[in-house]
Amino acid sequence: MASGNMKDIKRRIKSVQSTMQITKAMELVASSKMRRAKERALAARPYFNTMYETITRLAAETRDSDSVYTRRRDVKNSLYIVIAGDRGLAGGYNANLFKLAAASMEGKHAQVVTIGKKAQEHYAKRDWPVAADYPGIAETMKISDTHAIVSRMLGMFREGKVDEVFLCYTQFVSPLQQEPKCIQLLPASFERAEQGGKPAGARVLTEYDPSPEAVFDAIIPEYLYGVLYGAVVESYCSEQSARRMAMEAASDNASEMIENLNLSYNRARQAAITQEITEIVAGSGEVGA
């Protein structure tokens, strides 16, 4: 009986060791991808910051204008761009984002543009209409790849098919922290940051040709290209970071399980040896009698 129990434990130890080898390998792969994705995310931020500062200055110049991109409407239809992962085994990365998006869409007549295979699969089983799917583009994303997505979004907004556009993604804060966010893209709103009461200094006078309004309307798509690209890069980096953490936790759990199984195996082995010694002693006593 003890021998059979020992075989089961050894089989279980081998199974857990095989699983731990997989989780360790996935952890290393995720770590490598996270480093490259983090470099992309950090490289994209200066471009976005410069673009945002530029468009904020333009917004200040055109504050009294009536741009189609800033005009407020009665909201009847909403569009949500949801950026999730292409694979699972990333802890609560995808679930947390879907939960935030669902809370934001609650009570609205909304449709969805999905980026990532998991977002595609998630909304295929939900009641929200899907306007477009873009799976498998995050890892090799270039800013030119955002043009088709943004053009579709702007077309729907200009034609009045949607009255507001939101972007749901996961911001990379640190390798240990990822924060799901949902921001409004359209109608656009730009507010200059306050300078804490300090004098602003000399103001640069900029002349816009043909007009600040025309330049503002022309630069909005460029701004949205940068925002969407930055969101995809941040989300991909967050996905790899979350997967690395999940695989690290799985490897630690497997190691702890193997340790407990080894302890159980040693106990079963000791019990089997004790039983054999007892049987030998008992048998020798009967022979001597």
Results as ranks from 00 to 15, higher is better:
Ala231Tyr: 01
Cys182Asn: 03
Ile220Val: 12
Pro187Asn: 05
Asn260His: 08
Asp252Gln: 11
Pro221Gln: 08
Cys237His: 03
Tyr208Asn: 15
Ser251Asn: 01
Glu179Lys: 10
Glu179Gly: 04
Gly283Arg: 14
Pro199Met: 02
Ser189Lys: 12
Glu239Tyr: 11
Arg244Glu: 08
Ala218Tyr: 10
Ala249Lys: 11
Ala289Gln: 10
Gly196Cys: 03
Glu259Thr: 06
Ile219Cys: 12
Ile219Leu: 13
Tyr225Lys: 11
Phe190Ser: 00
Glu256Ala: 11
Gln270Thr: 09
Gln195Lys: 12
Ala246Tyr: 01
Ser251His: 05
Asp209Cys: 13
Gly196Lys: 07
Gly201Ile: 00
Asn266Val: 05
Ser251Tyr: 01
Ala202Cys: 07
Met257Asn: 13
Ile220Phe: 05
Ala272Glu: 07
Ile280Gly: 15
Glu222Lys: 14
Glu234Leu: 06
Glu191Tyr: 11
Ile258Ser: 07
Val233Ser: 02
Val215Asn: 15
Glu207Tyr: 13
Pro212Glu: 00
Gln177Arg: 15
Leu176Glu: 12
Ala289Pro: 08
Ala250Phe: 06
Val204Arg: 15
Leu228Tyr: 06
Pro210His: 08
Ala218Pro: 08
Asn262Arg: 06
Gln184Ile: 03
Arg267Asn: 09
Thr170Gly: 05
Gln171Thr: 01
Tyr229Asp: 09
Val215Gln: 14
Gln178Asn: 00
Ala254Val: 01
Gly283Leu: 13
Lys198Trp: 01
Ala289Glu: 13
Glu239Cys: 13
Glu234Ile: 05
Asp252Arg: 15
Ile280Lys: 13
Pro180Ala: 02
Arg243Lys: 13
Ser211Val: 10
Glu179Asn: 13
Phe190Ala: 01
Tyr236Gln: 02
Ala193Gly: 10
Thr278Trp: 07
Gln275Glu: 09
Pro180Leu: 03
Gln171Asn: 06
Met245Thr: 04
Phe190Cys: 00
Asp252His: 12
Asp217Val: 08
Ala272Ser: 11
Tyr265Ser: 06
Ile277His: 12
Pro199Asn: 09
Ile273Asn: 13
Tyr236Ala: 00
Ile273Trp: 06
Val281Gly: 14
Gln171Asp: 00
Leu228Ser: 02
Lys181His: 03
Ser235Pro: 07
Asp217Cys: 15
Ala188Cys: 04
Pro199Gly: 09
Glu207Asp: 11
Ile219Asp: 09
Arg243Ile: 06
Arg269Leu: 12
Glu207Lys: 12
Glu194Trp: 08
Gln178Ala: 05
Ser264Gly: 05
Ala271Lys: 11
Phe172Met: 01
Ala246Phe: 03
Leu261Ser: 04
Gln171Ala: 07
Arg203Trp: 10
Gln177Leu: 08
Gly285Leu: 06
Ser241Thr: 01
Glu207Phe: 14
Met245Asn: 02
Lys181Gly: 02
Met245Leu: 06
